[in-house]
Structure formats: structure tokens, C-alpha cells
Design a protein around this nucleic acid. Structure first.
Length: 740
DNA sequence: CGAATTCAGCGGTAT
DNA sequence: ACCGCTGAATTCGAT
């Protein structure tokens, strides 16, 4: 598939309308002016470089004025707001800066740049912006390059070609040795800093000394992250990194929660976990690139900026614009590779496929510093160059997280192209750069899906194919839609909806051992909290109800405890937290998915149904009908990422089998997958002075909206297992072919 | 209780 | 050395 770069850079000659392009982009536009030879692949060798650069000193074709549009006459409050179509705020083409006398009136782009600092004669000049009318020495004259260096520094990736052939054409910039020494230096630096800075970061070493964390780090097979994997990821390594990262983050949160809070000190488990993984080289896609990042798919979600750094989607951990230097012919230009739009600036995000993005700088969002005009440097310059080069820019959209209002969800919304740019006066009265980005067509839905879901929730539009708006008839705290937009089936076979587990008799209950007296809610590491004690000292959940790691059994607080209902050690008790729908899948019958994003470790639902007593269990053993059954006695593959001692295998003191055939909740619709995104966890909970075991489902990884929820059904180890096994339809490369 | 404020952070870029 | 669309903790302010 010749999607993306190639086609966009190499229009078939004559297929474009020069006047149209020029009208839209009056800047020096290399695409139409220097068409490349046809039949050139997007994956170009140096001699066939798609980038043909004009000489920095011109000549420019008639009517192409270099950079004048950035000139904003101080006295003419040029109305870009009123006419955003006029690129760069040029009201029309007649004025003194129109096409008629462009060159004379041209103001060099450098007029928007920081004045270059005085440099000794002959020093390298990094003033990229001074392309035309440059008074300083050109970069070309101060630096020579070998032809082969071009290929080495080409950061373009071809999403369809991540083969060894592709890799071999690049030389790895970062060898293992370099990587290690870099990490060592880094580590030394951070330790020094920790010592020197009033003990703010002093707890960092004991996080790594924590047995669970050091176990985790020791268990990671570092050969998995050899040079090859670090340079170019795949879905597996990206998923692995994200899972380790979030586990580490949750574990650090848990440890920190157990400590006395130091007033005024902000704890950043996200940064701590990120730094550890960075230093260990547990990351991928280190080499920056334009376009697709291998292993990251459109629609993938992140809950921390550090996650996008680790997988190479967006390297800066705070800045919104990521860019790289790219050698083009003899020039080096910064090109934007990705942006994050998260609401700090006055971005316009109304249309799902168009984004009006504000440039960086100018202290727009800082209250402690004086607001100033933005400058055409760093990311802003890179975006400008990317406009001219028409290269694809990854867009990550930050959205307020419904489940955690203080946090954000970042959605990778795929590739965009910058269509135009201009300068306008921001609210503060200072110049702000604006960039109009338009989504490259043909990509899977991502951000627009979020918008649709929001409209369904608001009742603005209705979901297509809804059979029942709430199949629970109000039995859950949130409605669960029944949807079929695939075929004519009107719904699953009849069953009774009830939201929790039904024990026919309390035989299987476990004796209640203790209750807690934490009136204000339980806290991790509190030696007085018996419930924390029962869970091994720490509470199993973080403050926002996220499960830190899988345990053989979790002891939640119950009605007899003194803690309030919102105590964090009751994560599975509040009913549904995400808006779910039961939907008709293409080939697996009915399935379950969520309208809301779900973060790794978040509670989804429990398995409701009737607990089969021992006699029925035996009867069940010979029964072929096991469509809606949860069977804790099956054997389960260990969860793929975390080592066994971190993710303990579930242990239930009796053979628990639940039937949801006649009645149950949404969990009965969850299908099997050999590479699931959900796992189950036994939970001990009190009711009427007795304790019962419940089966709760938690997210194994971050799950984007509308992704089917699946867990591993396990394998039955019986004589007639072969006949009863079902063909697995998960369709994954890891599929073991069957379940039960 | 949500919004606004405060502030230490970190990887990366540029000097 | 400097920079930035972080994110947690804390204070503020409108109910």
C-alpha cells in the first residue's frame, strides 16, 4: 500500500493544480515546484531523495514569495480571525505584501526568530530559519557531509516495510554500549541530584530496592530490548513496555501511599517509573521518525505522557511538539513528527478531522511569567517546515478522563498534514502561531469515535443498532446497551439479569476473620488497619481504585468495617464504573465492550451467576452445555507480562464454578481470547457476617473505547477435554487454537 | 466539590 | 543551561 509519504511527496506530474496550491500555500512550496521523478517509492535511497531543495538563496519562481506571509504589519491588525482562509493573515493579495512585489517586500522568516547570538567567526550556524537573505554563513559552508550520511539520518519510516531490509539501510545510531554508558551517566546524575536537592527525590533508591520492583526489573529479559527492538518496536514490545510501566507506576504509588505524606512535596510515580525504565533501556522506537510508529496503532490510549515517550510516539515528556533534524540535500531542517493537543492552549478541536493547533512558547499558559510573542523557533519552526514539506505529523489528543477528572487520557489519532499556518493575536494580545492540521484519510476512527460516544451519552445523537437502551433494566448503576449493527439478530437468549453472585447455600463461605476500624477510610501501610494487614500490609488498590497487581486473593472491606463506602478497599463493590454495551460480534456471537476508556488495573465488573454446589459441579462435569460458565478450576496460562511472583495465580479454597446460563450480568457476554485485555481476580467480601468469594474482572492493559473485552477462559484438564474444547476465534498469532 | 494555583520534574535540544 | 500543552498536592471560590 503506497499510502502516505510517497504519494504525497510525488504527485504525478500534471496531476496537481499549481495555481491552487500556490493560492493555498504561497510560501516556497517544494512539492509543486520541483516534482520528483515518477515511480519513486516512498522508501527512497539517497540518490532518489524525494526532497529536492531549492538553493537557499533562490531563485524563487515567480509569485512565490519566501516567507512574507509571516510578516504582520504592526499597524494593520490583520484580521485572521475573521478570515482564516486567508493564509498567514494576508487579507488579500493586493496589498503591499501581495504577489505583485513579493520579494522586495519580503520579510525574512528570521524576523520572527530569536536574534542569533553573537558567534565567533566560522562557528557553525544553526540558524535554520535564515534560509533566504541570510546574512550569516550558511550551514553548508561550515559542514561537509558524506553522501551515505544522508541515508543514515533519514528518519522516514515506511509503515508497510519494517523489514530487515528497511532496518539494514540505516545504521543504528545507538549501540548497546553507548546505550549502557548513557544510562549509567544518567543514573549517576539523578542520584547526585537526589542527594543534593534537600531530599526531595531521596526515596527513589528504596523504590528500586523494593523486593517486588527489583524482582520485576531483574525478571525482564533485557535481550528482549536489544538494539533492534529499541530501534524499532512492534505491537508486542510496545504492549510489554506499557504494561511494565504501569505496573511499576502503580507499585510506586502503593509504596508512596504507605508513607507519611510530606506536605508540599509532590510525588510523581509516573516520572519515577518512567526514569527507571528509560535508564534500563526498557523502551522502543528510540529513533525518531516521520509517520507511523511500529507497534503503536491509531486509537491507542495513554494515561501519562511518559508512556508516549517510552514507546517512541512522542519523545518530549512535556512539550507539545516533537521534531527531528532531517538532512535534505545539503541542508538540515527541523521537521515536526508529532504533536500533543491537550487543551493548555487555545486550540480549536471542533471538527474531529481538523485541528487548529497553537504554537509553543510565549508563556501562554504560565501565570508567573510575562506573556510574549511566540517566536518562530523550535517546534514552531519545525511545524512551519513540515507545512512546506507536507510531511505527516502524528497527532495525540489529550482528553479529560471521565474516570479520573484530575487526569487526562491521550488518544493517538493517527497522521495529519499541516494545511496552513498563520499568526494571530491571542487573548493576551501577543502573537500566537496557528497551524491547521487535517487528518490523512483512510485511517481507523479514533478521536471522532470519542466524539460520537460523547454525543450518544449526551443524547445528541443515538447509537445505530440499539436494540435495548439498558438490558439491565436499571439493575446496574449505569445502563448497558444491547446493540446489533451487524445482522438481524434481535438479542441473546433470554436470561435474568442480576448484578451479583448467588450462593445457593453458605457452605462455601469462608469464615470472617477480622474487620477494620478505619473510620476515615483505609490507608495503605497503616499498621492499625486489619484489612490492609490481611492483604499483606498494603491495600491492593491505589487511591483511585486501580488494582496494583494480581493477587491470589484480595480481602476487601465489608459492611462490618468502620470505613465509609467510598473506602478504596472496596473497588469491586460500587457497581459498574464504565459505560458498557453488549454487542453482536462478527463471528463470536455476542460480546462486551466499553464506551469509556479503561485504564490498566481498573475494575470492570464481577461475574454474576449461580454458584454450583458440589453435586451440581459433578453433574456439570458430564454436561456438554457450558456456554455461560465461569470455572475457576480450569488451568490458566500465566498473564503474559508480569512474572508469577508479582502476578500471583488465583487461589480459591474450593472448586468454584459459576453458571450464568439462566441469569447473570454483563460478564456472561465476555468472550475468550488467547491474548486477553481483561483478567479475573478472586475477592473475599463480607455480607451478613459471612464472607464470600467473588470473581472480579480488571483491565490487563489500557483499553480504548469500543474495543472488545476478553479474558482467558482457561483449559479443562479432564478425560473428555478434547471433545469439549472449543475452537478459539481470537484470531491472534499467539492463539493456542482452543479453549476449555 | 470543581477550578485554579503552585511547583518540582524529566528527557530532549541547543549552547 | 534551558525549555515545555505534566501531574499531584494544595488552595481558592462558587455554590
Amino acid at each position: 500500500m503506497e499510502q502516505g509519504l510517497g504519494q504525497d511527496y510525488i504527485p504525478a506530474s500534471g496531476s496537481f493544480d499549481k495555481s491552487r496550491v500556490l493560492n493555498v500555500r504561497p510560501l516556497r512550496c517544494l512539492v509543486p515546484i520541483f516534482p520528483s521523478p515518477p515511480n519513486m517509492s516512498s522508501f527512497s535511497l539517497p540518490q532518489a531523495a524525494p526532497f529536492v531543495s531549492a538553493s537557499p538563496t533562490g531563485p524563487f519562481p515567480p509569485g512565490v514569495a519566501p516567507f512574507y506571509p509571516f510578516f504582520v504589519p504592526p499597524d494593520s491588525q490583520r484580521p485572521s480571525e475573521q478570515d482564516p482562509q486567508a493564509p498567514f493573515g494576508v487579507p488579500n493579495q493586493a496589498g503591499p505584501f501581495g504577489f505583485n512585489n513579493p520579494v522586495q517586500a519580503a520579510v525574512p522568516i528570521s524576523s520572527f526568530r530569536t536574534p542569533p547570538r553573537p558567534q565567533p567567526a566560522g562557528a557553525p550556524n544553526h540558524n535554520w530559519g535564515a534560509v533566504n537573505g541570510d546574512t550569516g554563513p550558511s550551514r553548508r559552508s561550515t559542514r561537509t557531509r558524506t553522501p551515505s550520511a544522508f541515508a543514515e539520518e533519514d528518519g522516514y519510516s515506511d509503515s508497510q516495510n519494517q523489514s530487515a531490509q528497511y532496518l539494514s539501510s540505516f545504521s543504528m545510531h545507538i549501540t548497546d554500549a553507548e546505550e549502557t554508558s548513557k544510562a549509567e551517566r544518567k543514573k549517576g546524575k539523578s542520584q547526585k541530584r537526589a542527594r543534593g536537592s534537600k531530599g526531595v527525590n531521596i526515596s527513589s533508591p528504596d523504590v528500586e530496592a523494593d523486593p517486588i520492583v527489583s524482582n520485576l526489573l531483574a525478571s525482564i529479559n533485557l535481550t528482549t530490548f536489544d538494539t533492534f527492538r529499541r530501534a524499532d518496536g512492534d505491537k508486542e514490545s510496545v504492549g510489554y513496555i506499557l504494561m511494565i510501566y504501569d505496573f511499576l507506576r502503580r507499585r510506586i504509588t502503593q509504596i508512596e501511599d504507605g508513607k507519611e505524606a510530606t506536605p508540599g512535596v509532590t510525588r510523581r510515580p509516573d516520572l519515577r517509573a518512567g526514569t527507571i525504565l528509560m535508564n534500563k533501556g526498557i523502551r522502543t522506537n528510540i529513533k525518531k521518525r516521520v509517520g507511523t510508529v511500529p507497534g503503536v496503532e491509531v486509537g491507542d490510549i495513554f494515561f501519562f505522557r511518559m508512556e508516549t515517550c517510552l514507546v517512541g510516539l512522542h519523545a518530549p515528556c512535556m512539550a507539545g511538539i516533537d521534531y527531528m533534524g532531517l538532512k535534505i540535500s545539503q541542508e538540515e531542517e527541523p521537521l515536526a513528527v508529532s504533536i500533543v493537543s491537550s487543551g493548555g492552549y487555545e486550540d480549536n478541536v471542533e471538527d474531529g478531522d481538523v485541528l487548529i493547533y497553537s504554537g509553543q512558547g510565549g508563556n501562554i499558559y504560565r501565570k508567573d511569567k510575562e506573556v510574549m510573542d511566540q517566536k518562530l523557533e523550535r517546534g514552531n519552526l519545525a511545524l512551519e517546515k513540515s507545512l512546506h514539506r507536507a510531511n505527516e505529523v502524528r497527532v495525540i489528543r489529550g482528553i479529560k478522563d471521565v474516570a479520573n477528572p484530575t487526569g487526562k487520557v491521550y488518544v493517538y489519532d493517527g497522521l495529519y498534514k499541516i494545511q496552513e499556518s498563520w499568526v494571530e493575536k491571542g487573548k493576551s494580545g501577543c502573537n500566537v502561531f496557528k497551524y491547521k492540521l487535517v487528518r490523512v484519510p483512510g485511517q481507523p476512527e479514533a478521536f471522532t469515535m470519542w466524539k460520537s460516544i460523547q454525543q450518544w451519552k449526551d443524547g445528541v445523537t443515538s447509537r445505530v443498532g440499539v436494540i435495548l437502551p439498558d438490558l439491565t433494566s436499571g439493575a446496574e448503576s449505569l445502563p448497558v446497551s444491547l446493540v446489533n449493527d451487524v445482522d438481524g439478530e434481535k438479542g441473546p437468549a433470554h436470561f435474568t439479569y442480576f448484578p451479583s453472585l448467588k450462593y445457593s447455600n453458605p457452605v462455601n463461605s469462608v469464615q470472617s476473620s477480622s474487620i477494620c476500624a478505619c473510620q476515615a477510610g483505609c490507608l495503605s501501610g497503616d499498621p492499625h488497619c486489619l484489612c490492609a494487614k490481611k492483604n499483606g500490609g498494603y491495600l491492593p488498590y491505589t487511591a483511585n481504585g486501580v488494582l496494583v497487581n494480581r493477587k491470589s486473593l484480595i480481602n476487601e472491606c465489608g459492611p462490618s468495617c468502620s470505613c465509609p463506602p467510598n473506602c478504596r478497599n472496596r473497588a469491586s463493590q460500587g457497581g459498574l464504573k464504565v459505560r458498557l454495551e453488549v454487542f453482536k460480534t462478527k463471528d463470536k456471537g455476542w460480546g462486551l465492550r466499553s464506551w469509556d476508556p479503561i485504564r490498566a488495573g481498573a475494575f470492570i465488573c464481577e461475574y454474576a451467576g449461580e454458584v454450583l454446589d458440589k453435586s451440581k459441579v459433578e453433574e456439570f462435569g458430564s454436561e456438554a452445555e457450558d456456554e455461560y460458565i465461569f470455572d475457576a478450576t480450569r488451568t490458566y496460562q500465566p498473564l503474559e507480562v508480569l512474572p508469577g511472583d508479582l502476578n500471583e495465580d488465583p487461589k480459591i479454597p474450593f472448586p468454584l464454578i459459576i453458571s450464568a446460563k439462566n441469569g447473570g450480568n454483563v460478564a456472561r457476554f465476555m468472550n475468550h481470547s488467547c491474548s486477553p485485555n481483561v483478567f479475573w481476580q478472586p475477592i473475599l467480601r463480607e455480607a451478613n457476617k459471612e464472607t464470600f468469594i467473588h470473581i472480579a474482572f480488571f483491565a490487563l492493559r489500557h483499553i480504548p473505547p469500543m474495543t472488545e473485552l476478553t479474558y482467558d477462559y482457561g483449559i479443562v484438564q479432564t478425560n473428555n477435554a478434547e471433545q469439549r474444547r472449543k475452537k478459539c476465534l481470537c484470531g491472534l498469532s499467539k492463539c493456542r487454537g482452543y479453549f476449555y
